[in-house]
Design a protein around this nucleic acid. Structure first.
Length: 726
DNA sequence: CGACGTCCCCTTTTT
DNA sequence: GGGGACGTCG
């Protein structure tokens, strides 16, 4: 066994302090690149090694499966322990595990299935149809957002406020949706958390059991927790447990999906946190990069306060390139990538980051033409692909025949002659008997009242699958389902079905691998669930890796969000323009601009050696040419940290970094086209006061977009709009 | 039932 | 510009 000193070796003072804190709640403010994961895992290893707790006496919570896996991998490299059975995983994974263990008290069937986002949306559409709700007035996606944010606030339909007709309707849909889920025995992601929270709140003995067990609770990325997650932690933490929260308020970039940075200060207050350790020494970047990041983030208010530093030296200046248009920007990046590669920087150690996915197309196009291998992150994940979801739906029906969502997905896929009319009859029968579609279907078949021959065949097919399913392995079951259902044959007849066939085969492989692994289980540890249910949970909770793995010999393309937690030798941030980054939409949201700034902070701190910020004077957006100006975030970087690589037209007399603007080409004409800075307050004779949002149209007849608040968002021809600055 | 056309909208994303 | 959702026609 390794010695204690060995474990703690190489930690700096602050890291050491954090790792060895006493059994009290603590907040670790871990800046970018400050060794956060190391501190977290070393703390766990140290607690176990010194006998303060056992692997079973602690709980470690993360947001992503990737982070959980990495934590466990690092832990096993530090300590010769078996991580099997440890309560380490994502919020959802851990809640799922508790719900499986106490499904009766949680009022769930033992085989309850998990709805992913797409399943949830279709379930909501189904409820709304049954209720005859106008989906123009209540767009299903918005309804889903409403339901999820209620759940994330810990509110049920019975407890949520509704002040007008609209919100009353929403509340009604919410109630009906929850009823439907209960009837079908399914739970969406937010439900896993809320159900688990309610379970712990309602059942004192279960709560006491876990409180007693988890004397140490460690939470990663604490700044990303939502209200419900915080309440859940609070419940488990109880009065005397130690919660070790690691996070960085400056890297909170998920407010849009319910994250509450405020949980950090609530935590300090609620748990009377005396131990606050700031990890500010950065082991990743040179100081020019860190100074730029610090300078940007200083513009945010209400920070907990933190300044990154390094002993690595100044390093290279931050390169800023103003492109003529998006094509020029892409070409510039390609040229620089080629040059860096010649200098010996591995392609996989360079990243191209952007604010929104739409920006990747032109970059991909240019990279493709230049023959540079690249890899784009994002898009559909394995378990989200249509053919995989189809195959899984058959498996779900075998596990739980009342899962209407699954049934509807495949009742007529591959096509077997069940039309909309037949389905409507079936749904009507289910509604009348208050039973699931499957029960309604079997009744019909039993009574000989067939809506269609197809339905008869479908019922027989599922029964056949259930029969065949006894006593065979998971892999065999997957194979059986794919063949008996006709999915395989269907895609074989489709001349573009090759990829789908490959994916279906991959699913069989995944099922085989899963059952092999679950012998020495590393997964969700649903001790009480059978293997099929476990596999289906795995598919819902781990839809596949989305995040980049370093070391791929290809240029890495991803959104800034996807880049969080990663680092690269060289980083290009494209489209650093007003309207794009900060994103136009952010201007309308409360605190939106500050979140954009944190996003820029995250982006900048990904670079170790070299950082490029590029922006374009014009680019195609939504099929229209848009004219942009450099992002305010560029202005926030002190000029002496930057190097302007060109500087064609500088349309901004107020631009920072003037000494590098060696060639003020065409400056005069460009300058006069943009009389107002984005964000400038203006007054209009008719609409009143507003804020300049963006410029649109082409150079000859430039339009200006202004947000007049209550008068709305207006696009005005610049030439005629009599706007005055306020 | 499926192929094709039209309309609409358009951040970020994990579970 | 382009993908997704929906509707119509063969």
């Amino acid at each position: 066994m390794q010695s204690e000193t060995n474990l703690l070796q190489g930690l700096n003072d602050k890291q050491l302090q954090a790792v060895t804190l006493p059994h009290l709640s603590a907040l670790i403010l871990a800046g970018a690149g400050s060794g956060k994961t190391r501190v977290l895992t070393t703390r766990i290893a140290w607690l176990i090694q010194t006998g303060q707790t056992s692997p079973m006496g602690l709980m470690a919570v993360t947001f992503t499966n990737k982070a959980a896996k990495e934590m466990l991998t690092r832990l096993t490299s530090m300590l010769p322990i078996n991580t099997r059975g440890m309560w380490a995983g994502t919020f959802h994974g851990l809640c799922n595990r508790m719900l499986r263990a106490h499904y009766r008290e949680a009022r769930l069937p033992s085989t309850f299935q998990i709805l992913d986002t797409a399943d949830q949306l279709s379930a909501i559409k189904r409820v709304m149809k049954a209720m005859n709700v106008d989906d123009e007035k209540y767009p299903p996606k918005q309804v889903m957002g409403y339901i999820n944010s209620c759940k994330e606030e810990g509110l049920r339909a019975e407890t949520v406020d509704a002040y007008d007709g609209h919100s009353q309707k929403l509340r009604e849909i919410y109630a009906a949706y929850d009823q439907q889920c209960n009837r079908e025995g399914v739970a969406d992601f937010a439900e896993l958390l809320l159900r688990c929270y309610e379970l712990l709140e309602r059942e004192p003995h279960i709560r006491a059991h876990y409180q007693q067990r988890f004397q140490y609770i460690l939470v990663d990325e604490f700044q990303d927790t939502n209200r419900l997650q915080y309440l859940w932690l609070k419940l488990l933490g109880g009065a005397h447990n130690s919660i070790f929260a690691v996070g960085d308020d400056d890297q909170s970039i998920y407010a849009f999906r319910g994250a509450r940075v405020g949980n950090m200060s609530d935590f300090q207050r609620d748990f009377n946190v005396q131990n606050i350790v700031k990890l500010e020494e950065n082991y990743r970047s040179h100081s020019n990069i860190l100074d730029a990041a610090n300078a940007i983030i200083t513009n945010n208010r209400n920070r907990l306060g933190k300044n990154l530093w390094t002993s690595a030296g100044k390093g290279e200046p931050i390169r800023i390139y103003e492109a003529y248009n998006d094509t020029d920007e892409a070409q510039f990046i390609v040229d620089e990538v080629n040059m860096l590669q010649k200098e010996g920087v591995p392609l996989g150690d360079m990243a191209l980051l952007y604010r929104s996915n739409a920006q990747s197309r032109i970059l991909e196009h240019t990279l493709f033409s230049a023959n540079i291998p690249y890899r784009v992150y994002g898009g559909l994940r394995f378990f989200e692909r249509a053919e995989i979801k189809h195959a899984l739906a058959y498996l779900r029906l075998i596990a739980n025949a009342n899962d209407d969502t699954a049934l509807l997905r495949i009742v007529n896929f591959p096509p077997r002659g069940i039309g909309a009319r037949g389905l409507e009859q079936l749904q009507e029968a289910a509604r009348q008997n208050e039973c699931s579609l499957w029960q309604a279907a079997t009744n019909k078949v039993g009574e000989g009242k067939l809506g269609s021959k197809g339905l008869d065949g479908f019922v027989a097919l599922i029964r056949q699958m259930v029969d065949h399913g006894y006593g065979i392995t998971l892999g065999e079951m997957a194979e059986m389902v794919i063949n008996l259902s006709g999915l395989m044959a269907h895609y074989q007849n489709d001349k573009e079905g090759e990829d789908r066939i490959e994916n279906l085969q991959e699913l069989v492989t995944a099922a085989v691998a899963f059952s092999n692994q679950s012998l020495g289980n590393h997964h969700n540890m649903d001790e009480d669930a059978d293997q099929l249910t476990q596999f289906l949970n795995h598919a819902s909770l781990e839809a596949g890796d989305h995040q980049a793995d370093v070391g791929h010999e290809a240029l890495q393309l991803m959104t800034v969000h996807a880049a969080k937690g990663l680092e690269f030798h060289s980083v290009f941030i494209g489209g650093v323009e007003e309207g794009l980054f900060p994103h136009e939409q952010a201007a309308y949201e409360n605190g939106g601009l500050e979140e954009e700034r944190r996003l820029m902070y995250v982006a900048v701190t990904r670079a170790r050696q070299r950082l490029y910020l590029t922006y374009a004077q014009s680019r195609m957006l939504h099929g229209q040419v848009r004219y942009g100006i450099a992002s305010r975030f560029i202005d926030e970087i002190p000029a002496d940290l930057t190097k302007r690589l060109n500087s064609k037209p500088v349309a901004k007399p107020y631009a920072a970094g003037g000494q590098y603007n060696a060639q003020p080409v065409q400056a005069s004409s460009a300058q006069s086209s943009y009389p107002f800075k984005i964000g400038q307050s203006v007054r209009h004779g008719k609409f009143g006061e507003g804020v300049v949002v963006s410029y649109e149209g082409n150079a000859n007849d430039l339009a200006i977009k202004v947000n007049f608040g209550s008068a709305g968002l207006k696009t005005l021809m610049l030439e005629y709009a009599k706007l005055e600055k306020i």
